[in-house]
Design a protein around this nucleic acid. Sequence first.
DNA 1: GACTATAGTATCAAAATGATACTTATTATG
DNA 2: CATAATAAGTATCATTTTGATACTATAGTC
Lengths: 197, 197
Amino acid sequence: MLACFTVADGALAVLSVDGAGRRRAQLPTAAVPSTGTLEHAGDVLSRAAVGRVPVWRAQAGALMQDGLVLVVAAVVPAGTTAPTGSRWVAVDRALASQGAAIQAGITMLRDRLDREPVAFRLLPPTFTLSELQQVYELLLERRLHKASFRRTLLAAHLVEPTEAWRSEGRGRPAQLFRYSPRRRRGVQRSVRFELMG
Amino acid sequence: MLACFTVADGALAVLSVDGAGRRRAQLPTAAVPSTGTLEHAGDVLSRAAVGRVPVWRAQAGALMQDGLVLVVAAVVPAGTTAPTGSRWVAVDRALASQGAAIQAGITMLRDRLDREPVAFRLLPPTFTLSELQQVYELLLERRLHKASFRRTLLAAHLVEPTEAWRSEGRGRPAQLFRYSPRRRRGVQRSVRFELMG
DNA sequence: GACTATAGTATCAAAATGATACTTATTATG
DNA sequence: CATAATAAGTATCATTTTGATACTATAGTC
């Protein structure tokens, strides 16, 4: 089962296939083949469902739903069009019908956010830092501080500026950046205890 | 397949069943039942393998190994004895034969370390702060700063001191603490970019 | 041109971190 | 018994990180 996410209309959206007359979100599914790797099986399912191999993908868990179901979390860039017969559904609405699988996928995205380039893969090759921050805010479900976000991001040498600027409606144009990780993070910082009790 | 971890002899160890004449580590396995929840299936497997339900458990992934294999990561307190027919094997040695499954389990433990009480569950009900720090160091594979570790831990209100002290060999006795989370962490801190490029 | 909206920067105080060194309490050794 | 050794736990302080606030820059709208 594929939980393929993108950003659409400023919200996280998941790919849903149009069931026969059903209004509930349905995630694309395929039988797990008995041969080949699971990675390959995930690619096959993705290609059938989205028409392309996702730019990021991870196992999100296994569910018992009328048999054993593996959930694959996947990510495609904002702007990817859904193939006919499927559409992007805002996660809030989709949760109602496919809650467990979608939740597993989102949890996987959140958990990997600081270790793998999930947010960058949810964006086109070039993007503004405000867009990037919005993706982080979507996935973390909280507001981030603008100056701190940029300072930390730039200090991590994960992006490089391009020559291009984008003027979007009102205010000052934003510079476009490209994901271009330079250095490994050498210094490890202290432990965090975010336990909820 | 069960990757059940504990701390033994100052190292992370995984439960291995003694195969017929095999020296290689073998993780306990059971067929996924067609009925019931996966959580229950994990408990059944654990009870058969360790003689008890683990104090912490999580899905660690799915592997394609001569058929589809689900890996369950589990944790039992230090000092738990392995049932006859099985033994604790230091992770370093066990990795050789069951690398993928064990690695998936360790990754799960590490990823959850700051959000779920994995380290506390690897210890008996009461423990010293040095022991706790050692568990964190084992799982994170790096040294931590003593004063910072304690400051942060106490500020998180996750442990409470007991009246008991333990004198272990030489130096000053250590106070025993109990896992007793008090408050939810209200403040969220800034984003970390630990991407490896 | 004034107003508003958004990008991006600067400054500064507060908080978190890590190094170092210190104190305390115990066992080992002579 | 005195002293050394060892480990727990604490204190101090400089450095780094963080977040609030306010600022400048550049565009569109009225």
